[in-house]
Simulated assay, not measured.
Amino acid sequence: MQHYYSTLLDIPAALPLPKAILLDAFGTLFGVRGSVGHIYSEIASKYGVNCQPELLNKYFYTAFKNSPPCVFPGVPADEIAEREYQWWREINRQTFTAAGVITQFADFDRFFQELYRYFTTAAAWEVYPDVIPALTSWQRSPVQLGVLSNFDSRLYTVLQVLELDRYFSTVTISTAVSAAKPQPEIFTAALAKYQCTPASAWHIGDSFDDDYLGASRAGLTAIWLNRS
Rank of each mutant, 00 (worst) to 15 (best):
H3L: 15
S6C: 06
T7N: 04
A14P: 00
A14C: 03
L17T: 01
K19D: 15
A20P: 08
L22N: 13
D24Y: 10
F26R: 15
R33E: 13
R33W: 10
G34L: 14
G34T: 09
V36C: 15
G37M: 05
G37K: 10
I43C: 07
K46I: 03
K46R: 13
Y47I: 03
C51V: 00
Q52Y: 05
P53Y: 03
E54G: 09
N57K: 00
A63L: 00
A63Y: 01
K65W: 09
N66C: 09
N66G: 05
P69I: 13
F72Y: 15
F72M: 09
G74R: 06
V75H: 10
P76T: 12
P76K: 15
A77D: 13
E82F: 15
R83F: 12
Y85T: 06
Q86E: 12
Q86D: 12
Q86P: 02
E90C: 06
R93P: 01
R93A: 11
Q94S: 09
T95Y: 13
F96N: 07
A98T: 06
G100I: 07
G100T: 06
V101C: 11
F105H: 00
F105Q: 01
A106V: 04
F108L: 01
F108N: 02
R110T: 11
R110F: 02
F111P: 05
E114V: 10
L115A: 13
Y118I: 12
F119R: 09
T121D: 09
A124V: 03
A124Q: 05
W125S: 07
W125K: 06
E126F: 10
E126H: 12
V127W: 09
V127G: 07
Y128I: 00
Y128Q: 04
Y128F: 10
D130E: 02
V131F: 03
I132Q: 01
A134D: 05
T136C: 04
S137V: 03
S137P: 07
Q139K: 15
Q139T: 07
L145H: 11
L145N: 14
L145C: 11
N150R: 12
F151G: 11
R154P: 13
Y156A: 11
V161E: 05
L164P: 06
D165A: 08
R166C: 07
R166I: 04
R166T: 09
R166G: 11
Y167I: 00
F168I: 00
T172N: 05
I173G: 01
T175M: 00
V177H: 00
Q183H: 08
E185H: 10
A190N: 08
L191A: 06
Q195D: 15
Q195R: 14
A199P: 03
S200W: 01
W202Y: 02
H203K: 06
G205T: 03
D206G: 08
D206S: 13
D209P: 04
D209C: 08
Y212E: 08
Y212S: 11
G214R: 15
A215Q: 13
A215S: 13
G219W: 04
L225H: 01
S228F: 04
